[in-house]
Design a protein around this nucleic acid. Structure first.
Lengths: 247, 247
DNA sequence: CTAGAATGCGAGCGACCGCTCGTGTTTGTC
DNA sequence: GACAAACACGAGCGGTCGCTCGCATTCTAG
């Protein structure tokens, strides 16, 4: 009996997400698991993504997720300590996939690429990722997200802000830092609004909205850049940096 | 015994908002009421606005609203048939106030006012209203809003879209209708994103974000308008039109 | 003053939710 | 085949929520 797995996993986790919920959702112990279990986890995460997409996080019931996955509630809790852990795991996998996509997709190209192409490429990447994983938007931008996911969202947002600030600061050399920060927030706000419009359309109309989003961003930034050019490396840089806000 | 008020008000309204909830929340019968009752209603609506703002609609419990208002749950249900009706009444009062504000605030001014001033004035009005009534944003743009409020939101959105389309169509004379609609949606998306940024800031920073919002809109629309001018009447017109989408 | 309507209270009902636990089945290892 | 661990089930526990209902109190009309 080497490790005695998950005895008294959560002693009194009853109203665990109704209030503060200081139970450890990060169950770091590496458990022995069969291939069947991994399949179940994938099933459950897929079902959870579907339910989260349609009803949001809080309105999604664990019983509904289990039903969608074709298993019983007890089976769900064989693999996840509580509801929040499902969202956490889903979010973690999405973040990993986003890092992978970013790492391999944006090869260093001609460093004299104008801002138009650089911004366009970055927008295309983000849009494509969100189209492939609509639950990412639901989890990250939903208003009812639980504490741990909110932290991840804040970390991602802070990273994107500081990254955009870095890009802008080389274009707004004579502007105070607060203005650079403000413009960065405006850019991300525009991007989020555009993303919402893109996700709520399909086909040719979706493509048209993507073009509009790029136009809005470029026309907003035009007076800032004048005659400068920008390398795509400024927009993409090291994808590993996406895990945490810049120190 | 002239009217026999509210006998068997809701026969079986138990799980009324858990599922479809086809109970009539529009209790149109004019009830006799004392001044005390009107005061209580005002108290309850104020408390509801506060709770909705901080927790959102679904997470707000009727007991919490009653507690915030300093009354018992039973008293709350003396004046509102169910939770949704509270949000409905709150939304209706906000819509009325918005119409009033718009009706009296925007007097017809110099018809040769350039687009910059016209858009700026309209944005200022909407921003001011939302700053005065933050619950409006929480109810209208929250993701967990109930059916009837969602209908009101859709109606308001459709009105704003068709109004913006009307404005744009006089500027984009050679563009197809679908493009005009698309640009209108983009403008409202930008406005909503800007509003979110404005509401999450205060003081001078808030003012700066308001200026950025106007800049984004104007720079986006600049290529469309070229050398035209626009009367503010195109932006404001008849405030009574705000109740329903244009037929 | 008094009858009756309007207002106010709060324990508690039924429904749902997150989650548990006893029990039975499948899988991997010897 | 035997045994233990992993997996699966589903009734049900404790909890909160929206809402009710019987009853007490306050207002108002006559």
């Amino acid at each position: 009996m080497p490790d005695k797995p998950e005895t008294q996993r959560t002693a009194d986790a009853q109203t665990v997400d109704r209030q503060t919920a200081d139970a450890q959702t990060t169950d770091e112990r590496p458990r022995r698991r069969q291939a069947r279990g991994e399949r179940r986890i994938a099933q459950l995460l897929e079902a959870a993504a579907s339910v989260f997409c349609t009803t949001g996080y809080t309105a999604a019931s664990t019983n509904a997720i289990a039903r969608e996955a074709g298993v019983s509630p007890g089976t769900l809790y064989q693999f996840f300590p509580n509801k929040e852990a499902i969202a956490i795991e889903l979010g973690d996998r999405l973040m990993h996939e986003m890092r992978d996509t970013y790492g391999e997709a944006l090869a260093p190209v001609d460093p004299t690429t104008p801002l138009e192409e650089a911004v366009g490429a970055a927008v295309d990447r983000f849009i494509a990722f969100n189209c492939d994983h609509p639950v990412f938007f639901a989890l990250m931008h939903g208003p009812d997200i639980p504490g741990r996911i909110a932290e991840e969202h804040d970390a991602l947002h802070a990273t994107l802000i500081s990254r955009t600030e870095g890009l802008l600061s080389s274009l707004m050399t004579d502007a105070p830092a607060t203005e650079v920060t403000r413009v960065a927030h405006v850019c991300l706000g525009i991007y989020k609004a555009g993303l919402e419009l893109v996700l709520s359309n399909q086909g040719a109309e979706r493509e048209a909205y993507i073009r509009e989003l790029k136009d809005v961003l470029l026309r907003y930034l035009e007076p800032l850049i004048r005659d400068r050019t920008l390398t795509p490396a400024d927009l993409t840089a090291d994808p590993a940096e996406f895990t945490a806000p810049t120190p």
